[in-house]
């Protein structure tokens, strides 16, 4: 698994993808810091993190689109699937590599918080709450993107599919609001990423929300393993 993580991290930086992702993350988060904090001379980073939530959803498909599709296209999946590595180890390694890249991007916000802390406290509980909330949501999008990438040989199709999934995830709250049947509306709301993420931003660490996100990771990693395994049995 460590070999897979190292290989994936190397792949991000041997193509423009990794640089575009990190540059996008750093530039936009810098702009958001300027617009939300520096102009108004405030240390409250909640507005910045709120914008980063949307930015993460837009940039994450860049990280996941090639994870499995490129292996299929280059026929290197044959190498991975005939190596003495378990399918779950292989898929989890890819998931962790993308997650690590995301965390590198996200870590810039901690530096911003440290800079702001020189002048006044940025409200560390809120900062860590936002940081962890974004990590949980990002992980879920990565797991979904990884699964979609395993369905196709085309990076473009994988990216478009992941964007569609992201839009669907964002619209769950909207659908839920328009459904007149209570239990359906509640059921849909319980799947809302944004709803659960919002509680983290308040500095509240709800175990139920953590379990929800871990379950999303587990389900989509499992489905990706099944897709790879299905190829053997077809």
């Amino acid at each position: 698994m460590i070999a897979i993580i190292k290989r994936e991290l190397k792949a991000y930086f041997s193509a423009p993808t990794g640089y575009i992702f990190l540059a996008g993350f750093f530039i936009f988060s810098g702009v958001f810091l300027y617009l939300c904090n520096l102009i108004y001379a405030t240390a409250d980073m909640s507005e910045l993190y709120s914008l980063l939530f949307t930015l993460s959803l837009l940039l994450l498909p860049l990280l996941t689109m090639r994870l499995m599709s490129e292996e299929k296209k280059q026929k290197t999946d044959q190498l991975l699937l005939t190596s003495p590595v378990s399918l779950s180890g292989l898929v989890f390694g890819k998931f962790l590599a993308a997650f690590l890249m995301y965390m590198i991007g996200l870590s810039i916000t901690l530096i911003y918080a440290l800079v702001l802390a020189v002048y006044t406290s940025p409200g560390w509980a809120m900062v860590f709450g936002n940081y962890i909330g974004l990590a949980f949501v990002g992980g879920a999008i990565i797991a979904i993107g990884l699964f979609i990438s395993s369905l196709t040989e085309s990076q473009v199709v994988a990216a478009i599919g992941t964007y569609a999934a992201v839009i669907l995830v964002l619209m769950i709250d909207l659908f839920a609001a328009y459904i007149p049947i209570d239990f359906l509306s509640t059921a849909l709301m319980s799947l809302s990423f944004f709803n659960r993420y919002s509680e983290f931003t308040l500095g509240l660490f709800n175990l139920e929300h953590m379990i929800f996100f871990f379950s999303v990771y587990a389900v989509f990693i499992f489905l990706t393993v099944r897709i790879l395994d299905k190829k053997r049995w077809n």
Binding site: A11, T76, L79
Partner: peptide, 15 residues
């Protein structure tokens, strides 16, 4: 126990 060379060598061009 196996070393496998498929018909199209499984290579990563960026490495």
């Amino acid at each position: 126990e196996i070393g496998y060379l498929p018909e199209q060598p499984p290579l990563y061009p960026d490495m």
